[in-house]
Design a protein around this nucleic acid. Structure first.
Length: 499
RNA sequence: GGUACCUUGGCCGAGUGGCUAGGCACCGGUCUGCAAAACCGAUUACGGCGGUUCGAAUCCGCCAGGUACCUCCA
């Protein structure tokens, strides 16, 4: 394993870079090491379906890079500053005001939703990042970024707030190179909005905001008591932990502009060069063909998927079904959620995991009628092509058919090939795709349950021996209705409890 | 309104110029007392119109629909 393993793989890993809009060969800055930064959640509510897409996308990236033998430092921030005044929902109480009255600390709210987020991510089997920095923990670093922007002449103060001077910056650098925007278009197409008078230009963005009286999250700075602008947060923390130049920066496509564009600008304005070599953006999610929004009534929390408690959901969907469903689509495509699609994914996942279990029981032959090396090559080829998990999964299903055929005695496999096939499936299904077997629903009294079911099925065998099909079918039918799956075999029966 | 991207069979979703994606559903067959599971096989396709090409789902243009951003906050 390790680096030797990587160098053995003759293919290169290609990554689609938003900067160039092409797939580029991935070359890390320091051989053997990868710095990966991903924009994390804003902790002002429980995680919804939309949060899972970037988390799972970059978990796949993280896992695959590790699998290739890289030592990955994965930084994913927690945004816990700046939003605690008036929220997106006008109708709701302003959290800061409420916080004061109810004796709730804003940090307590942030902590609650941070814990909730981590809990949901763990259920989705998303590996924790190496570093999970908070914005509130890096105020000094952000003030330092603001100071450098001012010192280099790319910012100005206005009534205690500091703004990034986009037009000045655009004279020296290409503002819009990441998102494909043109500054002229931005200036002509921007509508006039209230509260913009502090800015010289509508394209400028705040890097330090003076706090209004009701804003209780505030820090002293040379300019005012206030808080850092959101765009400053990520560039301060990414470069702190990954260096002035690092390999990969990820996030949702919705963040490309202005957030990531502003990061590029601040990087150039403070360091004189860009920090990020590869920008990766995951696409968005729709539900029944519509975008997700609170006003549309299709806003579904992750926990509601897990419990099935939402009016649009016909049933509960386990975290692994959500994960598998997402991995069956390319991360750069929009993905549409529906009950029908999720139920299909649930069955597909079951088929895949069942085949993995069969691997341990396969009989070996002196020769193989299956080509494991070719299968393995196709799986890596897929992943090396910009993390094409749907293609990798399609290849794994070819492997599933092999496994089932061998199990049926219609194909055979040598001991060496079986070892290779088992390793391939363990690597891809568990390590790279990050799937896992579901916890068994019935955990208590399992032994007694086993005995009772076996007893019933043995009675059924007797009935069958007597050709008493009525009794035999009644037992099977009722057990099936309870959620058991009954399979007759040559020697007797097999059963399992579904869900 | 502007910019970018997308539109594949009953459903989801790969695929960038000629070659079976895959999963789920459905149908036929093998197996089974009958089923289930598994295996084998069949069927259903590239939004609309026009163009380039010997040949297009794949390139170009127009139209329709969708998504994201274009504003504060994150």
């Amino acid at each position: 394993m390790g680096l030797e393993f990587y160098t053995q793989m003759e293919q290169h890993l290609y990554i689609y870079n938003t900067l160039s809009k092409t797939k580029e060969v991935f070359t890390p800055i320091t051989p053997g090491f990868v710095g990966l930064y991903v924009c994390g959640p804003t902790v002002y509510g429980h995680a919804h379906l939309g949060h899972s897409r970037p988390a799972i996308t970059f978990d796949l990236v993280h896992r695959y890079l590790k699998h290739l033998g890289y030592k990955v430092r994965y930084v994913r921030n927690i945004t816990d500053v700046g939003h605690l005044v008036a929220d997106a929902d006008e109708g709701e109480d302003k959290i800061a005001k409420k916080a004061k009255i109810d004796q709730l600390e804003p940090m307590e709210i942030a902590q609650t939703f941070t814990n909730s987020y981590r809990n949901d991510m763990a259920k989705l089997n998303v590996l924790p990042p190496s570093i999970e920095p908070t914005a509130t923990g890096h105020i000094i670093e952000q003030i330092e970024v603001v100071r450098k922007v001012l010192k280099n002449g790319y910012g100005y103060e206005s009534n205690g707030s500091i703004y990034f001077d986009v037009e000045k910056y655009a004279q020296d650098y290409n503002y819009g190179k990441l998102s494909g925007r043109k500054l002229d278009d931005l200036l002509t197409n921007t509508r006039e909005l209230e509260g913009q008078d502090e800015k010289h230009s509508s394209a400028d963005f705040a890097i330090w905001k003076k706090a209004q009286p009701e804003h209780i999250m505030r820090w002293p700075s040379p300019w005012s008591d206030g808080f850092p602008g959101w765009h400053t947060e990520c560039i301060a923390m990414s470069t702190k932990y990954l260096g002035d130049r690092f390999d990969i920066h990820g996030g949702g496509m919705d963040l490309m502009f202005p957030h990531h564009e502003a990061e590029v600008a601040q990087s150039c304005a403070t360091l004189g060069h860009e920090s990020v070599n590869y920008w990766m953006h995951n696409n968005m999610i729709t539900i029944n063909g519509q975008k997700m929004g609170k006003s549309l009534g299709n806003f579904i929390l992750l926990d509601e998927f897990f419990s099935g408690k939402h009016k649009l959901l016909e049933q509960a969907y386990s975290p692994m079904v959500i994960r598998f469903f997402m991995l069956q689509a390319n991360y750069r495509s929009t993905l549409d959620f529906s009950n029908e699609a999720l139920q299909a994914a649930e069955k597909g996942l079951e088929r895949l995991l069942k085949a993995v279990e069969l691997l341990a029981n396969l009989n070996v032959s002196s020769e193989s009628s299956v080509d494991i090396a070719a299968l393995k090559a196709k799986c890596y080829e897929a992943m090396n092509d910009d993390f094409n998990s749907p293609m990798a999964i399609a290849n794994l299903f070819d492997g599933v058919r092999m496994i089932n055929s061998i199990n049926d005695g219609k194909a055979h496999i040598s001991a060496t090939d079986l070892t290779a096939l088992t390793k391939l499936f363990n690597d891809f299904v568990f390590d790279i795709l990050g799937l896992q077997k579901e916890a068994i629903a019935v955990e208590e009294n399992t032994e007694v349950l086993n005995e009772v079911v076996d007893l019933l099925l043995n009675l059924r065998i007797e009935a069958k021996a007597n050709k008493d099909w009525a009794t035999s079918d009644k037992i099977r039918k009722e057990l099936t209705a309870m959620g058991f799956e009954i399979k007759d075999t040559k020697d007797g029966f097999e059963w399992e409890l579904k869900k």
